[in-house]
């Protein structure tokens, strides 16, 4: 594996298990949005979560990144402790887990008061204590790789939606996480800007990044995913290779969901 490409992940995709989630539960008030979620992600694997809104997909991502604290269940990253959420989990443990992944948000959530380069180096410099010159060099290489070198000193409001989202991706990459999390990264974009963002994500997948992607872009899932999980009502209804799920789903619910997305007018 060549590490000269700035887009290449830190660890080689050796197929070992990176992340295990077992029985993850989460309620908001009376609304139980996750009713026992299980999956395993191997290094280099691309897992795509699909399903109707409210099915719990986003809550899965947010739990992995420590933005939500599950009410129960177990999360563990390779080489890290097993976090059992049925007991109180310390802040230190949650922060340690959070640092294993980086999130790309639907609404990019770039820092509006910082330029593109400042957005990208903020995490490495302020949190990871990377020397500033080195962080800048790394950030410039990443920006160059996604075609945004000339936007280095622009403020987020000066960028198109697609460019903003690509900066969001670069900001996540700059943290050198083990796992990338994408929460509907193209849902807020104008249709003609979706392609440039999906293209970058697809390239990252090809480079060997491990990622969990929540998306409604089924064509992306078909091309990039190693495994597709269809979620509904807080559980995984069906999982498998994209070819199987999309062409020959076993479950009636999966079939109906795919029909609604692929043939909305029928």
């Amino acid at each position: 594996m060549s590490h000269t490409d700035p887009l290449a992940p830190q660890a080689a995709p050796d197929d070992s298990v990176l992340l295990t989630a077992r029985g993850i539960r989460k309620s908001f008030g009376d609304n139980e949005v996750l009713k026992g979620f299980d999956f395993e992600v191997r290094r280099g694997e691309v897992v795509v979560l699909i399903g109707p809104s409210g099915s719990g997909k986003t809550t899965v991502l947010r739990s992995l990144n420590g933005l939500e604290t599950p009410d129960g269940g177990i999360l563990s990253f390779a080489g890290g402790p097993e976090l059992d959420f049925s007991k109180p989990v310390t802040k230190t443990a949650r922060f340690a887990m959070r640092n294993r992944s980086a999130m790309v948000f639907q609404q990019h959530n770039l820092f509006p008061h910082m330029t593109v380069i400042e957005n990208v180096i903020e995490g490495p410099v302020r949190v990871q204590r990377v020397p500033k010159a080195r962080a800048i060099a790394a950030a410039e290489a990443l920006l160059d790789r996604v075609g945004l070198s000339e936007k280095r000193d622009a403020y987020p409001f000066e960028l198109s939606g697609g460019q903003q989202q690509r900066v969001g991706i670069v900001r996540a990459l700059a943290l050198k996480p083990d796992l990338l999390l994408f929460d509907e990264p193209t849902s807020a974009l104008d249709p003609e800007l979706v392609g440039e963002v999906l293209q970058v994500i697809k390239e990252l997948a090809d480079e060997g990044w491990t990622m969990v992607v929540v998306t409604h872009e089924l064509s992306f899932a078909r091309q990039a995913a190693d495994e597709v999980l269809f979620m509904d009502g807080g559980v995984v209804v069906e999982r498998g290779a994209p070819g199987t799920i999309f062409t020959n789903p076993t479950e009636e619910r999966t079939r109906r969901f795919l029909d609604r997305i692929l043939r909305p007018l029928d």
Binding site: G123, R126, V127, Q128
Partner: peptide
């Protein structure tokens, strides 16, 4: 959340 996700307290 963006601050938290890049590892900030």
């Amino acid at each position: 959340e963006a601050g938290y996700t890049i590892g900030m307290s």
